[in-house]
């Protein structure tokens, strides 16, 4: 007898409820009207609905974030390919002078550090790598020696380094990556750096190795006076026959070109590393969003199932009580 009644009750409000994802209000209303002594279940059902709604909203926003990060990853991957082609072409510009003079990181006297950073964020640890190297370069120097001056390229280096060591900063250039970086832009920035009149310029950037690896690199461009003060470098230079001006003027020209091309190279390398790092960062965040979404889905389904079970019990016990 009791069993038959139960099945009729079940077909009633519960059938309605199963139609929708969220328990419809009509089911709750029917319940309260039909069984006034069960009105305690009313508020608890509402609370459950509210929490489910919250979970649903969270799921929606996490899903949207995942879409955005996936799109950003695709864009960065496409940009990285173009940037990589440019970097490989540009390496030929700086290789000859590196072959000629080698790398001379040890330079006495006043020097200027040129950190090259990105203008935009959301690209992993690219900029913090450069900033860390710059901070180390500022600290490592002989006793009593002057701290290197700073000429910062890029917005992310500016925000960190001008806060950390404002008195060392001479010049800041940013927004250069808004357009495709050109040699002309690098030359204009190089001219500003030349105004500091230093014995050496150290350009700090991330060298692009592969899509998953980049390396913070320091390229040193010595001034003509520095080269002339080192006999072994002068000897190397004198192996070449020169036409036109004398050696010191030639070295001045060469240093200007070297500085501009190294900055150009650094900007391209760093831009490429930035995109590569962004691909990785966005992949990680897409993965995290996906994990979060599946956790939320499980939570949502569990609450829904629990709600259905609770209601079933309420209905059954209500029916039994009426029978009683």
């Amino acid at each position: 007898m009791a069993l038959r009644n139960l099945s009729t009750v079940m077909r009633g409000p519960l059938g309605l409820q199963q139609a929708g994802l969220l328990a419809p209000a009509s089911a709750c209303a029917a319940q309260t009207v039909g069984a006034p002594h069960l009105s305690k279940g009313g508020p608890s059902t509402q609370v459950r609905n509210a929490s489910q709604l919250e979970t649903q909203q969270k799921m929606k926003s996490v899903g949207n974030i995942m879409k955005i990060t996936k799109a950003m990853k695709m864009v960065a991957a496409a940009r990285m390919k173009g940037a990589q082609r440019k970097v490989e072409a540009c390496r030929g510009m700086v290789d000859p002078s590196i072959k000629l003079f080698g790398d001379n990181p040890l330079v006495e006297g006043k020097s200027v550090t040129v950190p090259i950073t990105s203008d935009k964020g959301l690209c992993g640890g690219v900029n913090s790598q450069v900033n860390r190297v710059v901070k180390a370069l500022q600290d490592v120097r002989a006793d009593g020696a002057e701290a290197p001056r700073l000429c910062i390229v890029g917005d992310k280096g500016r925000s960190v380094l001008t806060r950390g060591m404002p008195e060392s900063v001479d010049f800041v250039a940013d927004q250069a990556t808004k357009q495709a970086v050109t040699f002309a832009t690098a030359s204009a920035i190089a001219e500003e750096i030349l105004k500091t009149d230093s014995a050496a310029s150290r350009i700090v950037f991330n060298k692009f190795k592969s899509a998953i690896a980049f390396q913070p690199t320091v390229a040193t461009v010595p001034s003509p006076e520095t080269i002339e003060s080192k006999p072994e470098l002068v000897e190397k230079f004198d192996e070449y026959e020169l036409e036109g001006p004398d050696r010191s003027e030639f070295l001045t020209d060469l240093q200007e070109f070297n500085l501009a091309s190294t900055i150009y190279w650094g900007m391209l390398e760093n831009g490429c590393s930035e995109q590569a790092s962004r691909v990785q960062a966005m992949e990680n965040s897409s993965k995290n969003a996906e994990e979060m979404l599946s956790a939320l889905t499980i939570k949502y389904n569990k609450t829904r199932q629990a709600g259905i079970t609770t209601e079933l019990i309420e209905i059954i016990s209500g029916a039994v009580a009426l029978e009683g």
Binding site: T162, P166, V169, F171, V172, D174, A180, T182, T185
Partner: peptide, 24 residues
């Protein structure tokens, strides 16, 4: 001609304070 473009925003700093920003 696209390779002829120059674009950057430069700010000179002196004694820990930024000067005027010039858009090139």
């Amino acid at each position: 001609l696209k390779r002829e473009t120059i674009f950057f925003r430069g700010t000179k700093w002196a004694e820990g304070k930024p000067g005027e920003t010039v858009l090139t």
